[in-house]
Design a protein around this nucleic acid. Structure first.
Lengths: 171, 171
DNA sequence: TATTGTTATACTCTATAACTATA
DNA sequence: TATAGTTATAGAGTATAACAATA
């Protein structure tokens, strides 16, 4: 396995030129991220069982737990889904008696979300499970590598505001 | 930003204890990967336009281009989806005249897949676009950081075979 | 019998648009 | 008017099961 050391004349003679130019998959960052995500998702259910809460719903539960009284709209925004989409998530969490809707007194359009007692218990249990899961997910990495991987991923994710500046000029 | 140096008594006094133990999101590797993937996916359509081919179908096109004569079953396996699922993908690619099914002479159950001429053109064009897209996706990283990010992601993804060995012991 | 491709069907996740009740 | 939540509906992507053609 070669290191990523740059060759003197980057481009024409760099290592990447060994890949078929029509191979959009090997050594592509986008595809590497996708594969890691699919792997992480599958491992999640291998570890917690096929009938486990989904990662997205676990995230919703965690956000409600760490932001008691958050509104549905604010939760939707944090999760990056629509207001309509959050309704089913909260319906589902409420049907399992993990979360409670309470209508806000000062603005009765809003629902404030709180964990129930069993929601608290479930979240605590999931927190333990997540810790184990994260260990397995990162089992091939040293602590330093894991921290750097997260740091690099965050650097990629937070490049959002570039998109206008670097937009391709139409030709 | 602290390095991931381990404290002598890992656990009770480690850095991770500063995060709310019920916050399953911050500094979680699984969630970092997911966010990066969502970002990469959105950036893809911001760059190529809302009506662009999806990354998954682009991948299918690329695999057919680099494996001319691949069967549908083999393509399904490479993409990690079912045989039934691949039918719609190939139907769609064929309806756009990018791909051609030819029945295999020595085994007439199989369809062999080939790019059409316009499929070749489309793939070449997508290869250029992908190169630009990858540049933007990694624009916040140095070349070394990008290579290491891919290396670390592959390390995570290829940890698959661990899952039995590291399975949590029931207690 | 086993395999390839196909169809029928269903499920999850997500979105948009129109509605209601409030503000 | 504008906003929060809801409902109805639709589309993408995926799966399983049953089937026909072929091996």
């Amino acid at each position: 396995m070669r290191s990523g050391k740059k060759t003197p004349k980057d481009g024409l003679y760099s290592n990447e030129m060994k890949i078929d130019p029509l191979d959009l998959v090997s050594k592509a960052l986008g595809y590497s991220i996708k594969r890691a995500q699919v792997h992480a998702y599958e491992l999640f259910f291998e570890f917690l069982g096929d009938n486990a809460i989904s990662p997205a719903r676990m995230t919703a539960l965690s956000i409600i737990g760490t932001h008691p009284g958050i509104t549905q709209s604010a939760l939707a925004k944090k999760l990056g889904i629509s207001r309509a989409g959050i309704v089913k998530v909260v319906d589902w969490l409420e049907s399992l008696n993990l979360v409670e809707r309470r209508s806000k007194q000062s603005d009765r359009r809003s629902n404030l979300l709180y964990l129930t007692d069993s929601g608290q218990d479930e979240l605590s249990w999931l927190a333990e499970q997540s810790k184990e899961y994260e260990k397995i997910l990162a089992s091939k990495l040293t602590d330093e590598e894991r921290d750097q991987l997260i740091r690099l991923l965050e650097k990629v994710t937070l490049s959002r505001c570039d998109k206008q500046a670097t937009r391709k000029t139409p030709q």
